[in-house]
Amino acid sequence: MLKELIELGKSMIIAIIAAFLIITFVFETVSVDGHSMDPTLSHKDRLIVEKVSYYFRAPKAGDIVVIKYPANPKEKFIKRVVAVGGDKVRIEGDKLYINNVPKDEPYILEANMRDFNEVTVPENTVFVLGDNRNNSRDSRFSDVGFVSYKMVVGRAALRIYPFSRFGKLTSFNDINDLSVFANNS
């Protein structure tokens, strides 16, 4: 009996350690809190965030990422990377420009946005925006600003709830991705 309890205890410890390692280094689930990513993500959506890819590559424009809120790292935000280190970003006349090229963004909720003066994204940081630009605390605000790679938790990869919207979350890194989005709307 004692031997069985010791084995059970060992198994539980191994399971706890394995769960900790998976949550820390591989993936975790998060819940969307708020409307800053409407219409792409809705309030109360449950997502799986994968962390492995960013050990091997930097976040790319178009990725939907979970970040630690720089003003309070215990809080997490979900945003879209729109620019990476070296890129110039500005919003003018309701249009986002990256390196002076206007971006086609069929995933945003509303086209009208406040103008934002041009900035250059520092190396090893990203510039993030919510898809609901008029209701998003993002890199346009000084308390978020440029987000260091160290503050990026991972990439939102899969929506697991609600079940009616279950599926892979698409990032929009090139024109081919945009045509996929248009076919799915």
Rank of each mutant, 00 (worst) to 15 (best):
M12D: 07
K150A: 07
M113G: 08
K88L: 07
F77H: 10
K74H: 02
D87C: 10
N173C: 02
V49Q: 08
R90S: 12
Y149S: 02
K74Y: 03
R165K: 12
D174I: 01
A182W: 05
S164G: 07
L41P: 13
I16V: 13
N173H: 06
D38F: 08
V180W: 05
A156H: 01
A157P: 09
V128P: 09
N173W: 03
L8K: 05
D104Y: 11
N135T: 06
S136L: 15
N173K: 05
R159N: 04
L47H: 01
V65T: 00
E105N: 09
N173F: 01
G62E: 00
I78Y: 03
I13L: 15
L41H: 13
I175C: 00
N112Q: 13
D45G: 02
F116M: 06
A15I: 11
E92C: 11
F77C: 12
L178D: 11
K150H: 02
F77W: 08
T120G: 15
A19D: 09
N183P: 04
P73G: 11
H43Q: 11
V126C: 01
L41D: 12
I22N: 05
A19H: 05
D87N: 10
I78P: 07
I175R: 08
A156M: 05
R159W: 05
V119H: 12
V152E: 04
L8F: 08
V126S: 00
K79I: 14
N135F: 07
S148R: 14
T120D: 15
I17S: 15
D33R: 06
L169H: 02
R114H: 02
K88F: 04
D94Y: 05
D87I: 06
R140S: 15
V153E: 14
P39K: 10
L47A: 00
D63R: 00
V152Y: 01
D33S: 07
F181C: 10
S179D: 14
A58C: 02
A15N: 03
P59D: 00
N134C: 10
A18N: 02
S179I: 11
G93F: 08
I108D: 08
P102L: 10
R137W: 12
I14M: 11
G86A: 08
S31R: 15
I175A: 11
R137V: 13
A71N: 05
V65G: 00
S148W: 10
D143C: 02
P102H: 09
K88H: 04
G130K: 02
S139L: 12
D63H: 01
I23A: 09
N99Q: 09
R80G: 15
S148Q: 15
L5Y: 04
